[in-house]
Write a protein that binds this DNA or RNA. Sequence first.
DNA 1: TATGAATGAGATTTCATTCAT
DNA 2: CATGAATGAAATCTCATTCAT
Lengths: 204, 204, 204, 204
Amino acid sequence: MSDKESREKLILCAKKEFAEKGFAKASLRKIAADAGLTTGAVYFFFKDKNGLFGAVAKEAMDGFFALLSDHLRNEEKDGIPHDGFVRGYENDFARDLVTFLYDHYDTVMILFHKAAGSQYEDLVDRIADELDRSYLIQAEEYASRFEGKKVNRYLLHFHTHMQIEAFTHLLEHVPDKETAYKEIRPVMDMLISSWMEYVLEDDN
Amino acid sequence: MSDKESREKLILCAKKEFAEKGFAKASLRKIAADAGLTTGAVYFFFKDKNGLFGAVAKEAMDGFFALLSDHLRNEEKDGIPHDGFVRGYENDFARDLVTFLYDHYDTVMILFHKAAGSQYEDLVDRIADELDRSYLIQAEEYASRFEGKKVNRYLLHFHTHMQIEAFTHLLEHVPDKETAYKEIRPVMDMLISSWMEYVLEDDN
Amino acid sequence: MSDKESREKLILCAKKEFAEKGFAKASLRKIAADAGLTTGAVYFFFKDKNGLFGAVAKEAMDGFFALLSDHLRNEEKDGIPHDGFVRGYENDFARDLVTFLYDHYDTVMILFHKAAGSQYEDLVDRIADELDRSYLIQAEEYASRFEGKKVNRYLLHFHTHMQIEAFTHLLEHVPDKETAYKEIRPVMDMLISSWMEYVLEDDN
Amino acid sequence: MSDKESREKLILCAKKEFAEKGFAKASLRKIAADAGLTTGAVYFFFKDKNGLFGAVAKEAMDGFFALLSDHLRNEEKDGIPHDGFVRGYENDFARDLVTFLYDHYDTVMILFHKAAGSQYEDLVDRIADELDRSYLIQAEEYASRFEGKKVNRYLLHFHTHMQIEAFTHLLEHVPDKETAYKEIRPVMDMLISSWMEYVLEDDN
DNA sequence: TATGAATGAGATTTCATTCAT
DNA sequence: CATGAATGAAATCTCATTCAT
């Protein structure tokens, strides 16, 4: 077996095992055996269990963060629309994200629900932080348009959380991509509308 | 050691250990040692690791479900208010729940975030199911008042999830009870208002 | 609960547990719990696990050895019949033995098949030794009647073993006493006839 | 340690430990320590305790069943001799079996007397079943030659059991192979003769 | 480019037994 | 007459990791 073949096979089998048992309970022995290799081989290709987990996650992680930062840059540049109408690319982003998540379904599920104990166990929190930073900027700008209003920081945080949950909930409960496109729309509408209505509070 | 000191001590040390490492990775050896006992003693007082976990959880669990079912019974009885105003006891419930959750802070955190592998690992799902069942009844009744409208089931599910998240998020991000009372209000307002606006969709 | 009641209850529950799991794997805790008592109580009434086992076995043991030695005394006194016909009391003994064994079915099964690890784990061997001693006397007397014949010691031993097996096999394979009476007869006939035919060998 | 030394050493030490304490009470820790290894090593080479037991037993088991089925095939093919004389290969078989059993003395003793709790704990019963099946065929054929006779099933079972006991008894009481050859003969003669005389009973 | 052997530390669980009260 | 608490030693098994070859 060639260098890359074995490595790929290990990653594939690891993905299956992590998905089934989660990072902490996954067995390297089983992964190696499933790949037709031995545990030693795992340590040839990867630093350790976490390294293997990282290799499983890498592609999806990279793609995800590229998508995300691209989106945030756009949003920060344009700000909240003054006419009250959500721009089309909000929905485009939701669509792109759904496409991406379902194209990397297995890995994404692992990263969101099976990463406890690994280097990525607080990935969702880190994403939330990044979103939060960006949303705060937008919210502050939004608040500056209204006299006597200020950002409700806590609600903003929670709202960010809801945004993320909107997608992880989708993945868990809607198996096929087409249905997902359909279900996510009213959810996003609801989230955007409640953001605009509730993120600001009376300044006192 | 007299009376129930040892048992209580075990529960106390277990609570600490479960909170730190989660059910699965918690060590009975360490729990027993921290309590100044041997692992054998754990098995005198409790059936097994899960039994100990149950003892840690019991009081909070019982109280929580009492509170919850009481609330649901009230809600189902009265239905959605026709005048569009949320009744006071909605907020009373939120207040009671916050009080309860913060009074059982450690245990609740364990049950919600550290129970993987235990008998309660899907507790949140079970709560969600119970809420869902109740909310569906209310939503159907609500839909019956409008021609050409029906319940958006998926959004209902998601919303239920968010209701729960509202409280777990609170616990994780707001340390003191008084602040919690304050922060939860706009969040609940937002959730209730978006529920009434988005839970129904065009019937076609 | 009075002194004797508790003791009797312990013995009864122990009998059940020993029968199910055998001496070694039986759990004192379970025995005590089944009797509505605690392990400590076992040590009040009996020296230890083996002591309890002894109490379970005592009645059957005493009765059995009484029956056996009675029989052996008779046999040794009268010797092998010269006319070649087996006396009636051979069959009487078989009948009495079957009666006794089935009247003490549970205990006997425990002693024969579940005593590993206990003080009685080699009970069958001890019975065999006692029988052997007696049968050797009878066989020597029998041999003395024939010129150039001597006892085949090894076959005698094995035959003793078969005699014992005849009864333990019966207990294991025939559940009811009446059938047992019927099945044991041809077996005993076979054993007696083969004893007389094969226990002696040419003296050289 | 090179090659298969460690594995062999483990099997050897296991054999000793099983022989001493029986399967259930044997300690993997001790086995590993005796072999100069850790318990973990046992689980590298074998699936679990039963797997190690299987490895200890394998060679003897395979040989034994080969010998046995070979013999039964011959017997079933030829049937009971009409002239009343036992064919030579009956004795050849007894001889071969004794040879085999003494060549695998330790393992055989373990399998017959120390296997409680293991995968082979009812090995003797399984052998008895196989013999029984074969002997029943032969007995039915034998019965068909006589008017008004039928097979005494219970006695047949018991007799099968005794055939097996003939060999296990030998192993336990006769240490050297040459003596064993000598002692087994009259026993086999006795068994065969009593089989032919008592396995049939009046048909009524 | 891997293998195969082995470690060592850990896990949960079970049990007979003891003893103060 | 018996309990209730606790011990301490043992059991099997799992696992990530290492390293010589």
